[in-house]
Amino acid sequence: MSTIKSRPIYPGLSPDPNARRNVVVCDAAGAEAVVELLARADGEFAGRTSVVLSSEGLFGKESESIVERLKPATVETTAGLVPAIDRLKEILASATMGLRLYAAGSEPLIGSVVQAGAENFIDPLSVRTEHRGSLKRRVQCVHCKGMTENVTTNPVKCAQCGLLLLVRDHYSKRLAAFQGVCINAETPDESPELKVEFQ
């Protein structure tokens, strides 16, 4: 993974034994990191922990098996990243002091959790994060400002305006996205091939 200065570092999950409540958002790949987190913590930690699982790409049975493995933590399964973040925002809206936020999974998931936390005045650096699974990115088109999700290729076609975007290695925590800039502005006749770069 590149180490550009605007990109956050994801140091890995570690339990906060002092938190009164732990809220974890993860996807299927990130759930493995949560299983390891629970195993590292004392027995009471899981009792204070609720997990919001984004089950995108999972079959019912697979979700059930993840829920089983995360016990005795409480797990809420949501249909994907967007409902998972919506659920997180509901939780944060009524949260009290002493809550610790965690995120594990793809970079768009981590970024969205940090972003939702920041909107509720949680310091981005205080969110405990671990990257697992796909390297796919969320990309903001600098021209039309539209977001393109689940980007694995570079360049990528903007989902909103259709320009062919170079995915720049520059990341905004506020937008939870990388920057996309038109790749052939100086060579409009050329159409560079889409190479898989973020798998």
Binding site: I4, S6, R7, V142, H170, S172, K173, R174, L175
Partner: peptide, 14 residues
């Protein structure tokens, strides 16, 4: 629009 809210190292990253 992309850089607002960034710190000194972040906005100079590129």
């Amino acid at each position: 629009d992309f850089d607002v809210g960034m710190n000194f190292f972040e906005w100079h990253a590129p």
